[in-house]
Design a protein around this nucleic acid. Structure first.
Lengths: 198, 198, 198, 198
DNA sequence: AATGAATGAGTATTCATTCAT
DNA sequence: TATGAATGAATACTCATTCAT
């Protein structure tokens, strides 16, 4: 349960879109109002402040992210399959909602308020922790090579994912992110593979 | 030759510091003037506009980056050693000038002006191209495994580097970036290694 | 008869309290609604406008004041006793309803609307006239010295009362207004006393 | 030394005039700008904020008040003459600068900010203390009756002065304040007089 | 009798920039 | 080379009020 009204969700959606189009600088109350065909003060019926909108935006994003991570963890398959799901679904989410990349990469803009910054860090930390966990299990399983610390592998997987998405965004969503992510994952899988001949 | 006067460099330095401290929102003409103990109009003696400052900032950053990349390429050692130099020196530069991370991660803020956005893309593309080139050569050499496309390896190396630096920044520069980068590079090297038993 | 419904009285009461707490600036429809746990539009069921609330507030205050003055005038005792009653009961009313001081001393805030300003002047003028009347009678009686014009004595009595209450308010209601008013009245009485040895 | 620039004094003067005309509600940055034929932002070159203007206004008023009190205290004549000077000059100041009454009687509007409220209290307290001091000396001298505590006499003198000025203001400056103040002072003098026949 | 949604007009303040000196 | 004064446009936010339900 999000606890958000339909109108609140609508506002957040518009806000994300505006950020995607022109960065944080484009996210003004005026622009939100314009995009929704209402007056500026009307927004304040639904959110107490602009900060509140940003906070709700991050909270919603965080919830979705955690849901995805949790459902991937619940899968029956191997740990590697869980990792793959996480990687591909993450990319898939962005592919289906390109605007959402704006949220991830506007982290810096959120830096100036402690509450926003905390949320950002919390989102990153959670993803990090869960992926590291899966990797650790996969290493125990013998599914993933054990000659590298799980922290480094986590860093590589997430770093690769992020840069891939960032490039997609910088390119103006010019290539097929989903297809690309599948290929990149295949490469990652080869790197992670436990050496067959010990 | 940079073509920048001493005063211009000073302004850029202050601008970078301000961005590092409080993001793009903190980078105002007023703040620059304050930090330099001059009046706001005085800045316009040195730069035509704020955009000009940002542009010069990116240009300078780009030049330094390219210099580093070029000098690494000029090294006599193996291709892998060149890659290592690129990776470690990149991290080293940030370690010595933490403010500079603000420039890299404010990319999104630069998105709203095409000239700035172009510079950002150009910086990333150049690094990408050169690293891909080194990897290709290393693959030919037999220094790096050939079962993965060079584009993916480039993506992984740069993605890992970026995320490591980002975490360092988000942590408030809390850990030793240089030491961490050495350890991470070691792990990367193991992943890149050509399989010893053909 | 006040002609005010229970709900209207409630609104006025809340309005006075809000003014007492934070001045006229604190008296907003939003704050009234909040304090009463109803919605803003609901207030308009009971008053046509905010101005109407203020007007009713002043009217109510005026009625109470006049009632007090009239009942003091109806007393059987000496004129001086009537004056004393007026002085002490006035102070007593404030002592029991500290919020009410906000109404008296927000006169300036009411200045910007002619209807409100008129009410304020009317309240002051009435008190003035009645006190002057009592003094005149007391002077005739020989209860009060006759070497000073009744207008000046009125000014002094009311001025003293007002400043005493104002200080009480500025002090955050820190002293016992009722006790203080008794002592001050004793002093006033000594000043007003007809010279015993003519 | 005030430490205020000519422009700052001008702004304060305009601000006082606006308050005199329509209360605190009339004192907006827009109105100040309009009255000075400059733009709103221009004001911020001279004062950091609106609060700053109000604070400077009170500080200036306080300084003038204290100067007057001090110079009256420095007079050679009797204590009663000093009191008279204080009373008449106070009234005279208002008579010559009717707008200034707005400052005194907007005390309530200043109540909502602690710094402003403190200044108000400080102004009142200082005048109070000095007048009480003069009265005490005059009582020792035998110039003023000693059967009343100096605090009560102070309250009466200041209260009378304030209410007189307030009425002048409410009347739209309709009577001659200076003449009235002389007559009222004569009455006060008679009340204060030490009884001639001991 | 009451509300959720909305609004036009206004609030203080900030920003990059210009201009006369 | 630098500044003091100024500005148009924008910013987040508030206010009393209206209207359909």
């Amino acid at each position: 349960m999000t606890g958000l009204t339909a109108r609140q969700k609508e506002i957040i959606e518009v806000a994300v879109k505006l950020m995607a189009e022109g960065g944080i600088q484009n996210l003004t109350m005026k622009n939100i109002a314009h995009a929704m065909n209402i007056s500026e003060p009307a927004i304040y019926r639904h959110f107490e402040s602009k900060m509140d909108i940003l906070l709700s935006m991050l909270t919603q994003f965080k919830q979705h992210s955690n849901d995805h991570l949790r459902s991937a963890r619940a899968l029956n398959g191997s740990r590697l399959a869980q990792l793959e799901t996480i990687f591909l679904e993450h990319a898939g989410r962005f592919a289906n909602h390109p605007h959402m990349t704006a949220v991830v990469f506007s982290e810096e803009a959120f830096q100036d308020d402690p509450r926003l910054a905390d949320q950002v860090v919390s989102i990153m930390t959670t993803a990090d922790a869960i992926i590291a966990e899966v990797i650790a299990e996969a290493q125990h399983n013998g599914e993933i090579r054990t000659d590298l610390p799980k922290e480094h592998l986590t860093l590589m997987i997430l770093g690769t994912l992020r840069l891939m998405v960032k490039r997609w965004r910088l390119s103006g969503y010019a290539f097929d992110l989903q297809q690309e992510s599948r290929q990149v994952w295949n490469s990652l899988k080869m790197l992670l593979a436990a050496s067959s001949s010990p």
